Amino acid sequence: MPLTKLHMVNFEEHQDTTLEFAPGITVIYGTTDQGKSSIRRAITWVACNRPVGPRSVRDNTKESEVTLSFDNSPSVTRGRKNDKNYYKIRDSKVDGTGVNIFKAFSTKVPDEVNAIVNLNEANIQEQFKKYYLLQDTPGQVAKTIHTLLGMDLVDTTATVVNRAIKQQAETITKAEITIAGIKKEIQKFAYLKAIEEEYRNLELAIQSCSKIEADIHNLTTTVEKCRILHKKILATQIPPSVEAEARNLQEELIAMEKKKDQIDKLSEGTSRLQEVDDEISKLEAWLTVERGARSIQKEAADIYSQEVRLHQLETTLAKIRTIDGNMSKVDQDRRANEKALEALKKKIKICPTCKKPF
Rank of each mutant, 00 (worst) to 15 (best):
L3P: 00
H7Y: 10
H7A: 09
M8T: 01
M8A: 04
V9D: 04
E12Y: 03
L19S: 05
A22Q: 14
P23N: 11
Y29P: 02
D33E: 14
I39R: 03
A42P: 00
V46C: 06
R50A: 00
P51I: 01
D59A: 13
S64L: 07
E65H: 10
T77S: 09
K84A: 08
N85L: 12
Y86M: 12
I89H: 05
S92D: 14
D95P: 01
D95S: 10
N100K: 15
F105P: 00
S106N: 04
E112M: 12
N118M: 13
Q127I: 11
Y132G: 00
L133Y: 05
P138F: 01
I145S: 02
H146G: 03
V160C: 06
R163I: 04
I165V: 08
A169V: 04
T171V: 02
E176H: 08
I182T: 06
A194V: 11
Y199C: 00
Y199R: 02
S208P: 01
I216F: 01
K231C: 07
I233L: 15
L234Q: 13
A235R: 11
A244V: 06
E252L: 15
E257S: 09
D261K: 11
K265R: 10
L266H: 02
E268N: 07
E268D: 08
E268C: 02
D277V: 07
L283Q: 15
E284C: 05
T288A: 13
T288E: 14
S295P: 02
Q297P: 05
L310C: 05
H311R: 14
H311A: 15
G325Q: 11
N326G: 08
R335W: 08
A336I: 09
E342C: 07
K345Y: 06
K347F: 10
P357M: 07
